[in-house]
Amino acid sequence: MDAGDALYEAVRNSLEAGARHISLTAAVHASGVSLCVEDDGEWDACGDPFTEGYSTRGRGRGMGLSIVRSLDRDSCIRRLDGRTVLTFRCKDRDGLGQTLALLFSLCWSCGTALDVSIGGWKCSAEDYAGRLGALDRAEAIWKMRRELALRLDKVEK
């Protein structure tokens, strides 16, 4: 599992909590990437959400945040001003650009707003939809992947 996989699990967790708005912030460092996923979904304060198998959505679930914890033992989740905030770090940014393109498509399909900020550069699913049309078109996903890969390269340099 890489940074992209952990990020996908984190955003999917937000969607399954009923989030209508997700903000994602990524800071690229020499030692890796710091990620913050903030959403307005439901919050369940009982138990440790990073525990494998912990889920508010029935049996056989509850792997996503444990995967995030397996990549970063200092990962943290808290409730702040009515929003759930998850922060974690990854040693590299493998899979990040490709995952972001899929997440824009996924959130757009679910009707959830997604705002992304990478090193000061900002974009939203709404911005992409305005330029590319329906984000579930294969053509749109391909274009987003290319743009995001170039954007992440610029940030690293």
């Binding site: 992209g4 996989d5 996908y8 899979g95 490709q98 995952t99 899929l102 498509s105 996924l106 399909s109 329906a134 579930d136 078109r137 294969a138 053509e139 996903i141 391909w142 992947r145």
Partner: peptide, 22 residues
Amino acid sequence: KVTLNSIVDEIEAKGLKDVIVT
């Protein structure tokens, strides 16, 4: 993820339009 990206790449390579991938 590799599966989905491979599908998207092949659709792009073959110039197919109007294929939805969710």
